[in-house]
Design a protein around this nucleic acid. Structure first.
Lengths: 181, 181
DNA sequence: CATAGCTTTCATTATTTATTGAAACTTGAG
DNA sequence: CTCAAGTTTCAATAAATAATGAAAGCTATG
């Protein structure tokens, strides 16, 4: 199976963006490829489509699974494994977001927590601790807020997203609302 | 000037996280160092504190400036340049966020836009285009939403962040509210 | 239980990215 | 104008990361 020029261009773009999205070129390509291909693909088809080695595809699959971005499917009477995106675009974006939070924020949050608990022994440490406290509070707020968003129903989210500039208005009325349970 | 163990540990952590935050180890370290150091530092002080070459510091400074994370200061009667964080922690986080959006989302958004405008020539392209449309819509929503947030006053933001789980409640009343201007 | 058909692993190799440090450049002061 | 104190650049090198492919590992089927 060979890609049309336009689709190929998209897949290559995903490759170039791959490392910015948190993985590497090949994995970006694989992800893009699976998204725009209607039918699930075998590892060999993926290797052929991207002109990369079979082993590389195997590694990529493992990685994409660790991000929970793809799922395996089987076709009766066929021993091969077929791969397809795990869920909707929205689901996938969510997973990437979550996973990146886990890698980019959580470790720092934990280090900062530890540090802040210890006592500062001189001015330098005191100043540093203040700064770390600020970073900590910021990251914690962001974390709490994002987990809040994930708790919302899809409809509520939709509604929130559509709100756009209305958000300011809503905020102005917040107190009123919360007083009427 | 030498760092305390605790502060050194923080700086090294910033280094390890550097590449996850969008830059590299050295630049992560430099950023962490400047944040927890009360006084502005010269390039040589930075190089000494981190045991890296003067040239590397120069590159790092250029990069941090391109992210708008540091600013130059001068001390009268001293020809050296002194570097310090550009703004509060919150400002810096915002800058990183913006800059990453520019690098991680905007190029894709533009590619998708172009692709969607062209006509699909077969079923594969049609399917691919549908998927791209979904990605496009998602990214555009996120983009619009985040620029919306940046438009809010700091107080409004604060208030929104504190809302936390109340956000669901507020949304349920959205329609009511918006009908009473 | 042997094997064909498929997948995974991992040592080696290739590619990419980061760092160094010497040379070139800039600039303010005398 | 010259020099000294500083900064930047960039070719060479080092380090980190990714890709290959041959060998080892699985596992349904006859």
């Amino acid at each position: 199976m060979t890609l049309s020029d336009k689709n190929f261009a998209f897949v290559m773009h995903c490759g170039e963006m791959g490392s910015r999205w948190g993985f590497n070129r090949t994995i970006g390509q694989m992800c893009g490829l699976l998204i725009i291909t209607k039918e699930p693909m075998t590892a060999n088809e993926i290797a052929d489509a991207l002109s990369i080695s079979r082993g590389n595809v195997s590694m990529g699959i493992k990685e994409l699974q660790s991000w929970r971005l793809i799922k395996v499917q089987h076709i009766p009477g066929d021993r091969k494994e077929y791969y397809a995106p795990a869920g909707t675009i929205w689901d996938m974006a969510n997973r990437v977001f979550e996973e990146r939070k886990k890698r980019e924020i959580d470790p720092t949050l934990s280090l900062l927590r530890d540090n802040i608990l210890e006592e500062a022994h001189n001015d330098d440490e005191r100043f540093a601790q203040q700064q770390m406290q600020e970073i900590h509070d910021l990251l914690e707020t962001v974390t709490k807020w994002s987990s809040e968003l994930q708790r919302l129903s899809p409809e509520q989210l939709q509604s929130l997203m559509k709100l756009g500039s209305g958000i300011g208005k809503v905020l102005d009325f917040k107190d009123k609302i919360l007083k009427k349970p």
